[in-house]
Every structure is written in structure tokens, then in C-alpha cells.
């Protein structure tokens, strides 16, 4: 019970951190529409590595919901795009997580997971944008450019995730009371 409460609090805390990054990112103008560094994803990835997929899904979901409510974009096209991207990347992360895990020789590290998340995110956004907002074939011409940006940012956020995980590990943080609870 204590463990559960602590975990809930942690999820809320991580989600809050992700929301802050999400909003900060939203306030920075982007050179290309649809291109954002996606640093809020770093939080999702850190939670995935430390607390598993379910916790990560919670953090990502809360981030999109709370973030859009705070930004006033709930149920707008922006929200649809960001929600579809988040859902797709969480599902993709879940698939890779179940299949390859974290600690086997064949498990990808932060970079691999970041790539999976970023591509799924962008692919879903493009698809939803094409389906709902810009049903024009010209949109697909942008796909390579957008996915290139995704890939570059995935490397950055993968690296950041790795740095953060190492830093948290060195601190030997005491938040792992629920070890083995999954």
C-alpha cells in the first residue's frame, strides 16, 4: 500500500515534470510546423527504464492531457496531433519493451527506445494530420524531412535519457522501494 502510494506520487511527480517541459517546449517557436525537440519524452523514457511501461504510459498520458488543458488546446487539432503521437509512441514502446526488455543482451538502450518513440510519434501525427486536417498528398512529401528531424531529436533525447539515468543511478536514489512489484 505504502509502495503503491509512493509510486502514484512518483508518477504524478514525473508527469508534472513532463508537463512543465511540454509547456516550455510549446512556448518556443518552431522553424518547421510539427517539429519539436520532444524533450518531454525524456521523462517518459526515464520512467520506462526505472519503473516499467505502465508507469511510462501514465506519465505520457497525463502529460498530454494536463499539458493541453493548461495550454488551452484540449480537443483542438494540436491536441489531436499530440495525443495521437503520444498514444502511438507509448504503444510502440510497449511492444519493444515486451519483446526485447531492458536488460538482455538484445535489449536496446535509451537511444533505441528514443528512436522507436520518436518514429512512432511522428508517423502517427502525420497520419492523423493527413486523415483529419490536410488530406493532401503533398503532406507525405514532408514525411522524410519530419522523420529526419525526429531521428536527430531522438538521438538527443536518447542521450539525455542516458545521462539522466546514469546520474540517478550514481545518486543511488531511494525511490526503488517497489522493486519487483511488476
Amino acid at each position: 500500500m505504502t509502495a503503491m502510494r509512493l509510486k502514484d506520487q512518483q508518477i504524478a511527480g514525473f508527469a508534472a515534470l513532463a508537463v512543465v517541459i511540454h509547456i516550455l517546449e510549446a512556448s518556443v517557436p518552431s522553424p518547421l510546423p510539427g517539429v519539436k525537440p520532444g524533450l518531454a519524452n525524456v521523462v517518459t523514457l526515464v520512467v520506462l527504464f526505472r519503473h516499467g511501461w505502465i508507469a511510462a504510459a501514465w506519465v505520457a498520458g497525463l502529460r498530454v492531457l494536463v499539458g493541453s488543458l493548461l495550454l488551452g488546446s484540449f480537443m483542438t487539432p494540436t491536441f489531436m496531433l499530440s495525443a495521437s503521437g503520444a498514444i502511438a509512441s507509448v504503444i510502440a514502446l510497449g511492444g519493444v519493451y515486451r519483446a526485447l526488455g531492458l536488460q538482455h543482451a538484445w535489449s536496446p538502450g535509451p537511444l533505441g527506445y528514443a528512436l522507436v518513440a520518436a518514429w512512432a510519434h511522428m508517423a502517427a501525427q502525420l497520419f492523423v494530420a493527413w486523415l483529419l486536417f490536410i488530406p493532401h498528398d503533398g503532406l507525405w512529401r514532408l514525411a522524410p524531412v519530419l522523420l529526419t528531424a525526429s531521428t536527430v531529436f531522438a538521438v538527443v533525447s536518447g542521450w539525455a535519457t542516458w545521462k539522466l539515468l546514469s546520474w540517478l543511478a550514481e545518486r543511488g536514489s531511494a525511490d526503488r522501494v517497489d522493486e519487483g512489484a511488476c
Partner: peptide
């Protein structure tokens, strides 16, 4: 965690 493993 290592940053780069072969699956990456």
C-alpha cells in the same frame, strides 16, 4: 545503462 548497445 550503456548508451549504445548493438540493438541500438
Amino acid at each position: 545503462v550503456r548508451f549504445l548497445k548493438w540493438p541500438d
